[in-house]
Design a protein around this nucleic acid. Structure first.
Length: 564
RNA sequence: GUACCCGUAGCUCAGCUGGAUAGAGCGCUUGGCUACGGACCAAGAGGUCGGGAGUUCGAAUCUCUCCGGGUACGCCA
């Protein structure tokens, strides 16, 4: 924790064997015992001392500067009581200087990220389960950009496949259909294929025709998938999600790159034609140790390719772009598939992207299924969220014009929806619940936004905020100190999130900071503080808080609002 | 059946590179509007951290095992 360099310095001077990283500073569990604590386990181990012995030795022998009031050992911990203002001045000044970059560790400077996410089948309006992929992928992108990465976001458009074929067959009049009606047509097409084998076979025939390059078929596929894609993108755009590249799967049929892979597989005798004339990879020959998932089919007997075969070509193309980090956001149902694909690529001497999995959003009744029409549509979810937000905004912001209230409601709705999903660790299933995911009170996005709106309100009233803490800077109240302790967690949180490719801790940070802020807000008058020095210091603390929180919210794709 | 993920207060979740009495929110019970915006704050009740065993000075956190939920397992994408 660089904020405590004044504590670390003298200790490092007294124990040259230690590195700064060995000194583990953290807020004391209670302010009664100290303002900040040193946990001595790591350092003591390095020095081959018992932690309590080390803590006592430091307390007794190391001489700290005048800003340190006392250092008292408590078992393996060393609790410091500080001249808070001195440290606070340092911290607030640092945050104000970094402003919109505060929290970034700059780990991506000069580096590139290529990320593929969402890649929904272009056949229906997206449901909230799919939205987890999109929001998660989008937030990861924002996280990496915040770290300085140059990011390219790819969306793989599965514009060819059995399901699209069936839809094309069934929805002959799709020119006149609305995007919403296509969902019904898609459900109907699948039901029909289940009941009518002849219809299902026509679907496969159509696919084969498509693959052979029949222009009329290709045009029909294009039209319907484009209409779906645009409809889906419109819904995703409401959540602030956008993409840089749309890669159509049909481009990767019989792609030249596939020969490279096939050759490598043949050389290892890992590819064969089975008794039903399918082209199959035996992953067992490549080091696959399990029986499940051992065989990977590339082509059907009629010569048409399967998704995985095309995906090999696509993945190689992505990897050829030379990004430093290649992420691939996938539902956990694709885990085995991604492992298979990775193994094949490795066997062919090709690099593979890094898969990032997330667990599904479930309904109380079980899994969502587009095919069975058992879904909560993202657009319905957003409509409901916006309606509820609008009601609240109308109550709260009577003085604002109509259009502005609408815009605010939309942002609050997005905040509620994104925050509810993103703050949960992605390896956990989420049971979708209308009430809790649309709540604006408690641990929610709108609560965090509200703290920002309050800060903005004070900033407007204050006028110009000095960019640097003054010489008479004073912050010593418990609530002020605890707020600062929350704010300095951001760089650590960001670093951990990048390492884990997990955005949830950032939501937790925003919540902690917002909660500490409201406590401070209730305990400490800012604009009417009892001295000018205090008034200035507090408004600067508010400005620093706004930076930290809005940077965190930005990564989650949520705007800090001026008013709400 | 096999592999992977998850199992922490009534509910939804943090905490998991082992470390000071396990933290929030919702709901419940109280109290706070002379509000720098009550989408708020303060206080209280509520937990065998799924069960068991092990490693350790120390385990919600690591290992094993059992139970429960999720996901997947050769012509869907």
């Amino acid at each position: 924790m660089t904020a405590f360099a004044a504590l670390a310095g003298p200790i490092l001077a007294a124990y040259p064997a230690l590195d700064p990283a060995d000194l583990d500073f953290a807020p004391s569990p209670k302010l009664e015992v100290g303002d900040v604590a040193l946990r001595t386990f790591v350092a003591a181990k390095k020095l081959k001392m018992a932690p309590p012995q080390f803590a006592a030795a430091v307390a007794k022998e190391v001489r700290f500067g005048p800003a340190v009031v006392s250092a008292s050992p408590a078992g393996p911990y060393l609790n410091f009581r500080l001249n808070r203002s001195v440290f606070a001045r340092e911290i607030v000044g640092g945050i104000l200087r970094e402003g919109p970059r505060y929290g970034s560790t700059g780990s991506g400077t000069g580096r590139k990220l290529l990320i593929e996410h969402t890649s929904i089948n272009p056949n229906a309006s997206p449901h909230v389960g799919r939205a987890r992929n999109a929001m998660f992928g989008d937030s990861l992108t924002r996280l990496f950009r915040f770290e300085g990465f140059e990011a390219d976001v790819h969306y793989y458009v599965n514009d060819i496949g059995r399901q699209i074929g069936l839809l094309v067959l069934h929805a002959e009049n799709f020119d006149t259909m609305s995007f919403d009606e296509i969902l019904d047509a898609y459900v109907a097409a699948n039901t029909r294929a289940e009941q009518d084998p002849e219809f299902a076979k026509r679907g496969y025939d159509l696919l084969a025709k498509m693959e052979e390059g029949d222009p009329e078929t290709a045009a029909r596929f294009y039209k319907i998938t484009e209409k779906c894609l645009q409809g889906q993108l419109a819904v995703l755009a409401r959540l602030g999600i956008s993409y840089d590249h749309f890669d159509r799967e049909s481009k990767y049929l019989k792609h030249a790159r596939l020969e490279v892979v096939l050759e490598a597989l043949r050389a290892k005798e890992a590819v064969f034609t089975d008794e039903e004339e399918r082209l199959v990879v035996d992953l067992g020959k490549l080091g696959w140790e399990r029986e499940e998932g051992r065989f990977f089919v590339l082509m059907r007997a009629n010569g048409s390719s399967l998704y995985g075969f095309r995906d090999l070509a696509y993945t190689m193309e992505k990897m050829s772009k030379g990004a430093d980090v290649n992420l691939w956001v996938l539902g956990e149902d694709h885990k085995l598939y991604a492992e298979q694909l990775t193994l094949i690529l490795k066997a062919a001497g090709q690099p593979a992207p890094e898969p990032i999995y997330y667990a599904h959003i479930l309904l109380r009744e079980g899994r969502m299924s587009t095919r069975q029409g058992k879904v909560v549509l993202l657009s319905d979810f957003l409509d409901e969220a916006t309606a509820r937000a609008r009601q609240k905004v109308d109550e709260q912001c009577k003085d604002l014009p109509e259009a502005e209230r609408g815009a605010i409601a939309e942002k609050v709705a997005i905040s509620a929806v994104r925050f509810a999903i993103l703050r949960v660790n992605s390896n956990k299933n989420v049971i979708f619940d209308w009430e809790s995911s649309l709540s604006f009170a408690g641990d929610t996005g709108p609560y965090v936004q509200y703290s920002c709106a309050r800060i903005n309100s004070m900033l407007r009233k204050f006028g110009e905020i000095p960019g640097e803490p003054a010489a008479d800077f004073v912050l010593d109240h418990d609530a002020e100190w605890q707020l600062l302790m929350a704010l300095i967690e951001l760089p650590k949180t960001i670093a951990a999130s990048v390492a884990a490719r997990n955005v949830a801790p950032i939501g937790q940070f925003a919540l902690d900071a917002a909660r500490q802020f409201t406590t401070f807000y209730h305990d400490c008058p800012v604009l009417t503080a009892d001295s000018e020095a205090r008034r200035r210091a507090r408004i600067q603390l508010c400005a620093a808080t706004l930076s930290a929180i809005s940077n965190a919210l930005g990564i989650l794709g949520i705007d800090a609002l001026e008013r709400m």
